[in-house]
């Protein structure tokens, strides 16, 4: 993708008087890191960047607590907008949040970028350890060209791309004001690993998840990096009643992950960020994709495709399956 086009578009957007600021990505402070940034003036636009290293969803910043654009002054904020860069998954997240009434589309100016998938930071940092200087990465013909200190390295995309992105169905933003670059076709979803786990006896499934969840330190990075986890006063913060106790043990960790997965059922848009930020490598997307698969099979529903469609669990159909009901 042409960065210059992105910067030009950003400049145009910031030239509009209703736009307060733009949320984008800039180079991070070291190595492969990318940092979210908030750009208010045209002069700052040149720090904008976009590469396969841009992993975090910027949609988070629209709903995060203390967000600058709160409708505190209804009249004033109504006229104001935030410009935002979105990839395919982010645009689904936006649709879903709009459908849920979490944000008003009138407050957004969305610039879409067809995304070729992001690099899993854990993989690339394991491959090129000790890289303190900022790095450039571009994707060309199925390879990542990684430039570290003027030295180029060519690595096949498959070796570094995040697992979720390999099966991304909607790489092109679905709803946006401007699209930068050419549309990309998606891949069919793959649920083979889910089916293998589904076929195991209950004890083995429990054992599998126990091994995974026993590592959890409950830092809640998965929750906070999730664009759809935007509840004001998360259930995990409630003390009366305390649904999930703060003790870190198997029982509570299971409860936490059940809660998290269930609250994302029919809402997860498969960006995979929860799994990528997990410091102890819990395969959270297995849970999310299981929910995604079931919801698709049972109700023919996919999250975030259309901001007009009501959320799955707020609706019902007379003919919903009920073969398990006595």
């Amino acid at each position: 993708m042409d960065i210059q086009k992105l910067r030009d578009e950003a400049k145009r957007a910031l030239g509009r008087k209703e736009i307060e600021y733009l949320i984008g990505y800039k180079k991070g402070s070291y190595g492969f890191r990318i940092s979210p940034c908030f750009i208010e003036t045209k002069e700052e636009v040149d720090q904008l960047t976009f590469s396969p290293l841009c992993s975090l969803s910027l949609v988070n910043y629209l709903t995060i607590e203390g967000k600058p654009l709160l409708p505190a002054d209804e009249k004033k904020s109504k006229a104001k907008k935030v410009a935002l860069l979105v990839r395919g998954c982010d645009s689904r997240a936006l649709n879903q949040i709009i459908a849920e009434g979490g944000i008003s589309p009138d407050q957004l100016y969305v610039i879409g970028i067809p995304c070729s998938g992001v690099i899993d930071l854990k993989k690339i940092e394991a491959r090129f350890p000790h890289t303190p200087d900022p790095v450039d990465v571009v994707e060309e013909n199925g390879n990542y060209i990684i430039t570290i200190n003027d030295q180029s390295h060519t690595v096949p995309v498959d070796e570094l791309k995040a697992e979720t992105c390999k099966t991304c169905q909607y790489p092109t933003p679905l709803t946006c004001k401007k699209l930068i670059g050419d549309k990309r076709a998606g891949n069919p979803p793959q649920y083979e690993d889910i089916q293998i786990l589904e076929a195991q006896p209950p004890e083995e499934k429990w054992q599998f998840w126990q091994n995974q969840f026993s590592r959890c330190i409950r830092c809640y990075a998965c929750r906070n990096s999730c664009p759809l986890c935007y509840c004001d006063g998360c259930i995990l913060e409630k003390l009366k009643p305390q649904w999930v106790k703060r003790s870190v043990d198997t029982n509570e960790n299971f409860m936490f992950h059940i809660t998290r997965a269930f609250h994302l059922a029919g809402r997860c848009i498969s960006c995979g960020e929860c799994e990528r930020v997990c410091p102890v490598d819990i395969p959270l997307m297995k849970l999310n994709r299981k929910m995604e698969k079931d919801v698709k099979e049972l109700f023919d529903f996919e999250a975030g495709l259309d901001p007009e469609v009501k959320p799955l669990l707020n609706t019902f159909a007379i003919e919903d399956p009920e073969d398990f009901i006595l």
Binding site: C37, I64, P68, R218, C219, Y220, S225, R246, S247
Partner: peptide
């Protein structure tokens, strides 16, 4: 703080952070 998403990864992985809470379960 504008880009902080408010998770606890920095404090839980810090060898010198010592804050604790006491709860009755």
């Amino acid at each position: 703080a504008s880009k902080c998403i408010g998770c606890g990864i920095c404090t839980y992985s810090c060898p010198t952070c010592y804050c604790f809470d006491m709860q009755d379960e």
